[in-house]
Simulated assay, not measured.
Amino acid sequence: MNATTKASFDWTLPARDYCDPALYQRERKEIFARNWMLFTWSERLKAPGDYVSGTVAGYPVFAIRDDDGVVRAFHNVCRHRGAQLLEKEEGHCGKLVVCPYHSWSYTRSGRLNKAVDFGEGISFDPQAWGLYAIDAEEWRGLIFLRLERGGESLVEWLGPIHDMAADYPLDRQHYFTSKDRDCAVDWKTYGENYLECYHCRTMHPGLCESMDIDSYRIDTYAKEKFFHLHAPKRDGGLTRGLYFYRFPFLMLNLYDWGSSIATIEPLGPGRIRHINWYFFTDISPEKAEENSRSAAWSAQIVTEDLDIITGVQRNLEAGIYTRGPLSPKYEYAVKSFQDMVREGLEPKEPLRGVAAE
């Protein structure tokens, strides 16, 4: 006798895909490097010379506002001996980016300025020996980077999100607080959890009190690689909201009064940093307590998710569970997400700009 009925359902990815080091390296090059990734917000780069440094998919990078007011981004590596150029998370570099190791210097546009006292008669072409550049664009007060240069613009990558979010005042909201946490969870484990509410009644009582769970749905846009989450508020809710997940891991929760902006920094197979920023239209002292409560409520939902999927990740790595069935009623978006993973790993043209000579 069969253990299941004959009704059709799809299967999850194999458990090994959530902890395989070799697969993670393929994801890093084929998926992460080819997509725009949220890096920081524009208010941190107010003046020419202001910079923010960090990592994107394991690559040390920094973004800087140049002399023309344009945001540029580079790998945080000196062309001489590979030293890290900017060591602070944010700051102001003055007219030049100067390597702390041997004092090679670069302009804000990335050109080599000077190879200090290198040797008589030896010169370097300033453009050819400039910093390794990566793509950078701003969208409504947020800064995105792309490791592989060229391809579709950020607005093209955002697709329908750009127009659907047009009347939400994201670019008039201001940073209030953030909550970042390192977790023993694979990026796919997190994404799949985000894209189903099968677990909501069990895991999120507070969310279900404020949301009409019976009307919850997720619209999947396979070609554009994004998901529109519909979560109607119960009577008495504060305001309308707009909720997006753009593959591989951009999460936008937009309201008239504030926004919860989240992303993932993959740290390795089975490890992520969950990054969540909270912006509000009014960040005056009078609104601080109310804003703090709103951010804490949102962060609690993430905590509930991370608590359960950390155990999921342990079991994915333990060697007993191999794969499971996906509910066609509740987990259709998970299936679409997994199809995007498979498609992202298909053979493509060689990368440009990630590990240039």
Rank of each mutant, 00 (worst) to 15 (best):
P48C: 06
A288W: 01
M340N: 07
N193K: 01
Y330G: 01
W36Q: 06
H274G: 10
R352S: 09
G119T: 04
V71S: 07
L154A: 09
V52Q: 05
S109Y: 03
D235P: 14
A7I: 11
V185W: 04
F32R: 04
V97Q: 07
F118A: 11
L254N: 04
G150K: 02
K335P: 00
I218Q: 08
K88S: 15
W11N: 05
S105L: 10
V98R: 13
E304F: 03
E224H: 08
Q173C: 03
T107R: 15
I320M: 08
E346R: 13
P60C: 10
G130Q: 10
D20F: 03
T310K: 11
I308M: 15
G319E: 10
A63Y: 00
P269N: 12
H75L: 12
V52D: 01
Y245I: 02
L316N: 14
P232Y: 02
K95M: 06
E137M: 07
G237E: 03
E304G: 13
V97P: 04
K188P: 00
Y332V: 01
P169S: 07
L242W: 04
A73Y: 00
R146D: 02
G324T: 06
G353A: 07
K6G: 13
P48Q: 08
N76S: 07
G258D: 00
V302T: 15
P328Q: 05
R234N: 13
L238H: 10
E196D: 13
Q300W: 10
L306V: 10
E346H: 03
G270V: 02
F118I: 11
S260G: 11
F39C: 01
D180K: 14
L252E: 06
P266M: 03
A165H: 08
A356D: 12
Q338R: 14
C200V: 04
L238P: 00
R26S: 09
D117W: 04
E27I: 09
G141V: 04
S8V: 14
S53R: 10
D256S: 07
L351I: 02
S259E: 09
P48V: 06
I134P: 03
N2R: 14
G141M: 08
G151K: 04
R72S: 02
L85F: 02
Y243N: 13
A3V: 08
L170R: 07
K233P: 00
Y51R: 01
L38T: 01
K188R: 15
Y330S: 09
G319L: 08
M37D: 06
A83H: 07
G237Q: 04
T189A: 15
S109R: 14
F124K: 06
H199I: 06
W139F: 03
Y190Q: 15
F337S: 06
R352V: 11
P21I: 06
D219C: 01
H162I: 00
